[in-house]
Design a protein around this nucleic acid. Structure first.
Length: 611
RNA sequence: GGCCCCGUGGUGUAGCGGUCUAACAUAACGCCCUGUCACGGCGUAGAUCAGGGGUUCAAAUCCCCUCGGGGUCGCCA
């Protein structure tokens, strides 16, 4: 048997073009579409590389043509024939292979197909649970193939990048120890140790720090992480992080490295998208003040401005009392919205109230453009109008960069709440006014997060990043007296309003690590039990180190222009953390449970088999 | 756990108290067709309108409950 017949195909569909004219080729793939003219039959043959038209002509091969009448969508076939230029005037400029076609001389039906439950060959929105149940068919659709291929290219790029930077990719265990902090763990019962459990890693955080203690200096990993928490469009129970850690570095070393990675990656896989560089860097405090969010969307302006000083001097009770109670008065300017109707304004007010604000004060600066200098009090529409002077209105407008015809949205109250509400209003207006360029990637770094914050459940302090985060030296004196005012050497990278990564410089000495735990109310015994392995490691020459973890799924989602991370994960879980392809999770047998020394509540327990 | 949205032939939609014996497109099936490419023409079949209960003379349509799906808040160190 000749060597070349060992393969079912000699060429891919998408690679054929006029240079192959005259070649005899063998293709294999799926029937994308069939156009049966009674005499001639055209079949669009699809494989991973693309689509090519195959012509079945009864005058060329009667038997082959007869077989082709049986073809239906998604049949798997192997076709041999000659590549030919299409007759003049029948070229299809919409197809990359549209100049040529394959004149079929042989065909083998390798496998038939039932009519698929949804279209493979058309870009139609299909109910997601149906797509997930038949994920292998969903993944056959060209748009999904492109996203998965993009994912591959991104991961390949990242591995090459870190390799070139001198990083080592090191795997870490999936079965580790449950930690008391952070998200809920996925637990794995131990057969060997009755009553004991492994946990799946929420991230390789402690392991990568130990790799630094071990002296590897530059580590990275494409790491699977598990968190048993509710899902979102950008969150599911298992996800992938680009995890990295470096020794002998400061925060800027990490952020600069990540910035170089993101820029080169984005330019490589999405050269068509707009990128602003260098990436803006702002502190957490600044991000909250200006954008009301720790993950600001930089694709549009509408920044939050503080007008507390003007408000305090006014005769408007809501404003004055907010400031005298230690709060703030801040606002954003919605350009060109001065003519908003009562209904539209009420909708904004309801939104503000649903976010926890007492209310929303709007000031419309007339309903048409013009020079702010000409603004008259009669043109100002606001509940606050009769308590404000025209000078005060103009001063507020000036502070917000507002012009005639604009609408100012103002919230008064406690500082944090005011920022958060305005942050949401800002996003709402940005979307409503279509200020967001969908073709841009706006990265930024948010720095110096607080070390700890109040835990709403326990009332104690909990880390904002994680318990190994290094406090800023200048804030250390506050660690015991006012821990929430201690800033950390931490940094998030955000893009288009998504947090796509976060990291920090770590504590690397036993004494400071113990002090941080103690400041959060841990007693010595607990510290030893829960984190003793880390503290001990720090006693054996742990180098200063730090790192970051990047959410690979979110990053790919943004680079793919997808709405959810499920669109860039081959086999994702649905919102209820279920795998609809396999129907996981599923019950297990009594024997399996028994072997693991487990007993379930009666209503869930399978009956022992006595067959 | 809270709130919002969705569930109609295989798929995607329309219908939102009576004209629904449920419409349209596409897919499917049959016949015709030698230059189509979302091929075309003719015909056939296919839905107890997610499930249950209620209101009404009358429910796909209004109300309640359940189930399933999506979004979001909480949650996610």
């Amino acid at each position: 048997m000749p060597q070349e017949i060992a393969l079912l195909k000699t060429h891919t569909c998408g690679e054929l073009n006029r240079r192959r004219v005259g070649n005899r080729v063998t293709l294999a793939g799926w029937v994308d579409r069939r156009r049966d003219h009674g005499g001639l039959i055209f079949v669009d043959l699809r494989d991973r590389s693309g689509i090519v038209q195959v012509v079945f002509n009864p005058q060329v091969a009667k038997v082959v043509h007869d077989l082709a009448t049986e073809l239906r969508s998604e049949f798997v076939v192997r076709v041999s024939g000659e590549v030919a230029l299409r007759p003049k005037g029948t070229e299809n400029p919409k197809l990359p292979t549209g100049e040529i076609e394959v004149i079929a001389g042989e065909i083998t039906i390798l496998n038939r197909s039932k009519t698929p439950p949804f279209y493979i060959n058309e870009e139609v929105e299909v109910e997601e649970n149906l797509r997930l149940k038949y994920r292998y068919l969903d993944l056959r659709r060209p748009a999904m193939q492109q996203r998965i291929i993009l994912r591959h290219r991104i991961v390949k790029f990242i591995r090459d990048f870190f390799n070139a930077e001198g990083f080592l990719e090191i795997e870490t265990p999936i079965l580790i120890k449950s930690t008391p902090e952070g998200a809920r763990d996925y637990l794995v019962p131990s057969r060997v140790y009755p009553g004991k459990f492994y946990a799946l890693p929420q991230s390789p955080q402690q392991l990568k720090q130990l790799l630094m203690v071990a002296g590897f200096e530059k580590y990275f990993q494409i790491a699977r992480c598990f968190r048993d928490e509710d899902t979102r469009a950008d969150r599911q129970p298992e996800f992938t992080q680009i995890d990295l850690e470096m020794s002998f570095v400061e925060a800027e070393d990490i952020t600069n490295l990540v910035e170089r990675l993101m820029i080169s990656l984005a330019k490589t896989v999405r050269p068509d998208m707009k990128l602003v560089e260098p990436f803006p860097r702002l502190t957490y405090a600044e991000a909250m003040e200006r954008f009301g969010s720790d993950k600001p969307d930089f694709r549009f302006g509408l920044e939050i401005r503080d007008i507390s000083d003007i408000a305090a001097a006014s005769k408007f009770g809501v404003f004055c009392s907010a400031v005298s109670d230690g709060g703030k008065v801040k606002g954003i300017c919605a350009p060109g919205c001065g003519a908003y109707t009562r209904g539209q304004l009420e909708e904004l007010n309801r939104l503000a109230q649903s976010l926890g604000a007492g209310g929303l004060v709007t000031i419309a600066l007339g309903s048409a453009p013009g020079d702010l200098g000409d603004l008259q009090m009669e043109m100002v529409k606001s509940v606050a109008a009769r308590y404000l002077t025209i000078e005060q209105v103009k001063a507020i407008a000036q502070k917000m960069n507002a012009r005639m015809g604009d609408l100012m949205l103002i919230v008064a109250g406690k500082g944090n709440l005011v920022d958060e509400v305005l942050g949401e209003l800002r996003l709402h207006m940005g979307r409503q006014l279509k200020l967001i360029d969908p073709n841009s990637l706006s990265f930024a770094f948010v720095l110096d997060f607080p070390l700890v914050e109040r835990d709403k459940k326990t009332g104690g302090w909990k880390p904002v990043v994680h318990p190994f985060t290094m406090p800023k030296e200048e804030d250390l004196p506050l660690l015991e007296s006012a821990p929430d005012r201690v800033r950390s050497k931490s940094y998030d990278i955000v893009c288009n309003g998504y947090e796509i990564g976060g990291g920090s410089i770590r504590i690397h000495t036993r004494d400071l690590q113990k002090r941080v735990f103690a400041a959060r109310g841990y007693i010595d015994e607990d510290i030893e039990e829960l984190f003793g392995h880390m503290l001990e490691a720090f006693e054996y020459g742990a180098p200063p180190h730090g790192g970051i973890a990047l959410g690979l799924d979110r990053l790919i989602m943004l680079l793919a222009g997808a709405e959810t991370i499920r669109e860039v994960i081959a086999f994702p879980k649905n919102q209820n953390a279920a795998d609809l392809t396999f129907n996981a999770p599923s019950p297990v047998t009594w024997e399996q449970l028994d072997e693991l020394h487990l007993k379930l509540h009666d209503e869930y327990h399978p009956v022992p088999e006595d067959r």
